[in-house]
Design a protein around this nucleic acid. Structure first.
Lengths: 195, 195
DNA sequence: CGGCCATGCGTACGATCGTACACATCGTTG
DNA sequence: CAACGATGTGTACGATCGTACGCATGGCCG
């Protein structure tokens, strides 16, 4: 039997507790003590399991980013065709974020860290890469980049605005961004892609 | 002659210093002491000019948001026609933010606060309203919302990504988002707008 | 079965924080 | 010209922080 004193779940619980505390109090207000209390572990466990606060934050946000990307993957994996994918995009913006003020807050906390520290920038980069790969199941690479950016912007604006955003606008925006311009089509024709 | 002791510039200098400190250290690392030192004023001046840290942060970010919105207004005021406006959008993303890691950082710090506190959410809301008004000089209201969101997303992704983003993608994305879909056009035709 | 060592925890220390408050300074007015 | 009040500042206090460190604990091996 494994040692009863060795508790591998403890580390996980601390990470989850960290995300909870960050979601409610912000990174600034997330202290070792508050996280420990929320996780139900003694203060000493913090420095035992994580050599520094940065390590804890890194692991926490990596987990967060992956959990969001998982949902992303799932939505687009289920989409049957391009129109299904378009609908999935709109749903992600208008359904997924309604219930989760939490996700909005955590996303911004992560971006704020990423804007300053390379470690966190790598997390966001990997996250964005996963998103684009999921989109790549249904759209060409360039459209993926545009669509990814559009989703980001719609998500942020919908979440930060007071009054709820009209779903129709998201639908139309997705329709437009997934429709190549004439100039683009002309260029593509000049450099045909053999397959 | 006005009193020499009364120094109305001091308040301004403190606000500017606050933005500088936030840009380099983050909201979390911005203390009264650091801001005071950077502004060249004694610690006591902080609580004298601002009743609380929140008031200082509010004023600082209001000033920041307005300064960005001013540039926005200027760019679109100079644009002669729709194509000029499209180019202005791309320039805003690809020129304006290159030199300013500062703006990126401050934007995210503001969004992070806005995600949690209504006071700051109002600031972002007003900012977004100003942006859309500027865009409204050249585009219809719905397109403004989509374009505004797209700018936001492109800005964030371009800034957070490691490798520089291709300007051509922004150009194409703007072209697409400003071109109504066929379904949209059909709907517009059914409800004509008399003017 | 008894001692040892890896594992885990309680506590204390130095630093830093926001803020309050007593005091200095100087223009103004009777 | 003297005293008062408005304006500005230095300092000290209580709280909170990250982290280090010495001690408790219990599984394992001789």
């Amino acid at each position: 039997m494994a040692s009863r004193r060795f508790d591998p779940e403890r580390r996980d619980r601390i990470i989850d507790a960290a995300l909870d505390v960050i979601a409610t109090q912000g990174v600034a207000g997330a202290s070792h003590r508050k996280i420990a209390e929320h996780a139900g572990v003694p203060l000493g466990s913090m420095t035992y399991h994580f050599v520094s606060m940065d390590e804890l934050l890194t692991e926490a946000f990596r987990r967060f980013a992956n959990s969001i990307a998982d949902r992303f993957d799932q939505q687009f994996g289920e989409a049957a065709d391009v129109d299904g994918a378009r609908q999935a995009v709109v749903d992600l913006i208008h359904l997924d974020l309604l219930d989760s003020q939490r996700d909005l807050v955590l996303t911004h906390e992560l971006y704020t860290l990423a804007a300053r520290k390379p470690v966190f920038r790598r997390i966001t980069r990997d996250w964005m890469a996963r998103s684009r790969r999921a989109l790549g199941l249904h759209f060409d690479p360039e459209t993926c980049r545009m669509l990814d950016a559009l989703i980001e912007g719609l998500f942020i604006h919908a979440a930060l605005d007071i009054e709820p955003h009209d779903r129709a606008i998201a639908v139309e925006a997705v329709a437009r961004i997934t429709t190549p311009s004439e100039a683009h089509l002309a260029r593509e024709t000049k450099e045909p892609n053999p397959t």
